[in-house]
């Protein structure tokens, strides 16, 4: 699956479009990690646990979006945007959306 956050793909033309696709996920780390992050907060620096959590979540959200696009019969997603929300404290809520298209 080809993905881009631009509208046009140089050298290829869009033959069909299928509408909007999106992938979202809400994930959390277990309490031990949350507490470690709290301690780390005192000293500053990278919160490895959370970096990992966000990376994993983003990957999963993208995976879900791709799955949706595939089910719609597309072979590429253009104009991809990321967005987050914060409903649950201490959880990563990733949202990614774009337009499913078919490139020739």
């Amino acid at each position: 699956m080809f993905m881009t956050n631009t509208e046009i793909v140089p050298g290829r033309t869009i033959t069909q479009y299928h509408g909007m696709v999106s992938g979202s996920t809400v994930r959390a780390k277990h309490l031990g990690r949350d507490m470690m992050a709290g301690i780390k907060n005192i000293f500053g620096g990278e919160l490895k646990g959370y970096t990992e959590l966000l990376t994993e979540s983003r990957k999963e959200a993208i995976e879900r979006m791709i799955q949706q696009a595939r089910q719609m019969g597309a072979n590429a997603i253009i104009n991809v945007r990321f967005s987050t929300s914060s409903v649950a404290a201490g959880a990563a809520e990733l949202y990614v959306y774009g337009t499913a298209v078919t490139l020739n």
Partner: peptide, 10 residues
């Protein structure tokens, strides 16, 4: 949230 993983509720 305590145990980690997917927060399916949300």
């Amino acid at each position: 949230n305590i145990f980690g993983g997917h927060v399916t509720a949300y």
